[in-house]
């Protein structure tokens, strides 16, 4: 089985973000970057399938600046076989442009499965995987939290609002990974050493036209300062009064 995994380098969300002078990007100074969590689970899923089959290849792709190679190396140190870096000055906001460039690279790879994360926390869009599926005309199942493969078909579990769905799909397929599918392994020391020798090819990303651009960034409005109503059960009547008369939600 030939499997591709698309991974994105994203900033640590614990950071205090600052808007750059241009007003349309974030100041990257001081930010820590790592692989998107959903993408780490996607790598884990691919590795587990390969291990179970006892054969196959796991190829990792990432589009972005040179530093995206660190993200690919991390996946290689987890156990992926080789990496492809699609070089771009920076990662555009437009998910369609990213998808187009990834699809152009994936198109001739004859992959049986292509994994994505459900969403990247920085773009908060969740669109790149299914767009790639359409561009390649692959079957696609999004936000999976369970996966079984047998006889060249798959069954995936999806969490919906208040329901669970079990879907059957044919190969080749694009799968996007939700939380709960697995726990990503940590790279072992041996894995980190081995990753240094694995192939990591770099080529320019073919981004094409951008249809969506960031016009401006702003910090969310502060919430009006709240108040501690009181302590313990004694504060309940006052809370109820405020919910009725001030917030008008009761």
């Amino acid at each position: 089985m030939k499997i591709a995994v698309c991974v994105k380098r994203v900033p640590d969300m614990d950071a205090r973000f600052r808007i750059s002078a241009d007003g349309t990007s974030l100041d990257e100074a001081g930010l820590k970057f790592d692989i998107n969590d959903f993408d780490a689970w996607a790598v884990e899923a691919a590795l587990q399938l390969k291990e179970k089959a006892g054969q196959g290849e796991v190829v990792v792709l990432s589009l972005g600046p040179a530093a995206a190679q660190e993200t690919i190396r991390k996946a290689l140190s987890m156990g992926a076989d080789r990496g492809i870096h699609l070089a771009a000055d920076r990662i555009p906001f437009d998910g369609f442009a990213i998808a187009r460039a990834l699809a152009a690279e994936l198109k001739d790879g004859s992959y049986d499965l292509i994994f994505f994360g459900k969403m990247s926390p920085d773009s908060s869009n969740g669109i790149v995987g299914p767009i790639v599926a359409e561009l390649l005309d692959y079957a696609c199942v999004t936000a999976i939290s369970g996966l079984e493969m047998a006889d060249g078909r798959g069954t995936a579990k999806r969490e919906l609002e208040g329901a669970q769905e079990f879907v059957e799909f044919t190969l080749p397929a694009v799968l996007t990974v939700d939380e709960g599918l697995n726990t990503a392994r940590y790279p072992s020391l041996k894995g980190i050493m081995a990753a240094k020798k694995k192939t990591l090819e770099s080529k320019p990303a073919q981004l094409g036209d951008t249809m969506v651009t960031i016009k401006s960034l702003a910090m969310p409005p502060d919430r009006p300062p709240g108040k501690i109503v009181g302590e313990g059960a004694a504060a309940v009547p006052e809370l109820v009064r405020l919910l009725q008369t001030e917030a008008k939600v009761l």
Binding site: M13, F93, P121, A218
Partner: peptide, 12 residues
């Protein structure tokens, strides 16, 4: 909202 809602983008 981007970056888990810590920043609000206006996209065109």
């Amino acid at each position: 909202p981007v970056n888990i809602g810590k920043v609000i983008a206006t996209a065109s």
